[in-house]
Design a protein around this nucleic acid. Structure first.
Length: 304
DNA sequence: TGCCAGGGTCTTT
DNA sequence: AAAGACCATGGC
């Protein structure tokens, strides 16, 4: 592509590009995007086409989108789809001022909203990716989880090359549905997780599981119920996906060890709160449980 | 070294 | 419904 394609998204209220970039940079050894200085690059698939985009901050605070490479020339329609993707990824369409209003009076959240002011609940728009990441991350430490994800992506995903670097597209369900359990185990995924990942891929290829179906669920509970029909997807994984991909405001993975540790720290507790205690102390977060979880997780990154 | 990790399924009470 | 066994392995 010879023409440079650049445009902007107007920044919403209470948005800090820097805070969001910091989150992306400190989250772990990520393989699905790449931070270089003050910008982030990510490969995105739209149907059969793929694009490599770069986001940066304009002097007025807007978000600059630049297409670095594409399998086809981006039409206006595709540019609109890329804009939608970014709006979704960074959750730009949510007015988070009510969250801050609630949080500033909350014992656990009040310090975080100053520290991370303008941070969005950065999502995982790709449904299959969100599910796989949830499954891969079950009950292992995050550093190892990021290693496993990288092996998975670099074995079964597609790389876009640009200026001597590789940018990875997450594997498609089609690329995973016929892989054997043994093959995934060779990446050091456990036997159970290997089977879960293949099962989820097969369900998606067969059309039994789709983003559209979950999106259409009338309630958080029904969406959770639909997801937990999948083997390997329990309450924690379901809520994780409903938070990161579907953005249910009250998705709340209460069994999460990280969440429990964050609350323990901020509340200066002697031991981690139980699931039941977390449900109680999170009750005031109604409509913002997902955001509260995201900010609490964020408070743990300093130690990674 | 032994406990912990962004859990889940299956079995037993 | 709730509790326990088992899985499985790197990180620190």
């Amino acid at each position: 592509m010879h023409e440079e394609l650049t445009w902007q998204i107007e920044a919403p209220k209470a948005f800090s590009f820097e805070q969001n970039l910091l989150y992306l940079a400190e989250g772990g050894d990520e393989c699905t995007y790449d931070i270089q200085g003050n910008h982030v690059r990510k490969a995105i698939a739209l149907g059969e086409a793929y694009f490599l985009i770069e986001l940066s901050e304009a002097t007025n605070g807007n978000v600059i989108i630049r297409v670095l490479k594409g399998s086809i020339f981006p039409s206006e329609k595709i540019k609109a789809q890329l804009t939608s993707f970014v709006r979704d990824w960074f959750d730009l369409d949510t007015d988070i001022l009510p969250f801050y209003e609630m949080a500033k009076a909350d014992d656990y959240l009040h310090s975080l909203i100053d520290q991370y002011y303008g941070l969005r609940n950065i999502g995982i728009p790709n449904f299959f990716e969100a599910l796989c990441w949830g499954i891969i991350g079950q009950q292992i430490n995050l550093r190892f989880a990021y290693k496993l994800k990288r092996r998975f992506v670099e074995t079964y995903g597609q790389a876009i090359e640009w200026n001597g670097a590789q940018y990875w597209l997450f594997p498609t369900p089609e690329a995973i549905c016929n892989v054997s359990v043994n093959e995934l185990m060779s990446l050091q995924l456990s036997q159970n997780k290997s089977a879960y990942l293949i099962g989820v891929a097969q369900a998606m290829v067969r059309g039994e599981l789709s983003k559209e179906n979950i999106q259409a669920s009338p309630s958080l509970q029904e969406a959770e119920h639909e997801l937990t029909k999948q083997k390997g997807v329990g309450a924690w994984t379901a809520h994780y996906v409903l938070m990161r991909c579907f953005r249910f405001p009250d998705a709340f993975p209460v069994a999460d060890v990280g969440l429990q540790n964050a609350v323990k720290q901020l509340g200066e507790m002697e031991k981690k709160p139980s699931k039941e205690e977390l449900i109680q102390l999170g009750a005031p977060w109604e409509n913002w449980k997902s955001y509260a979880t995201f900010y609490l997780w964020r408070s743990l990154y300093e130690k990674m």
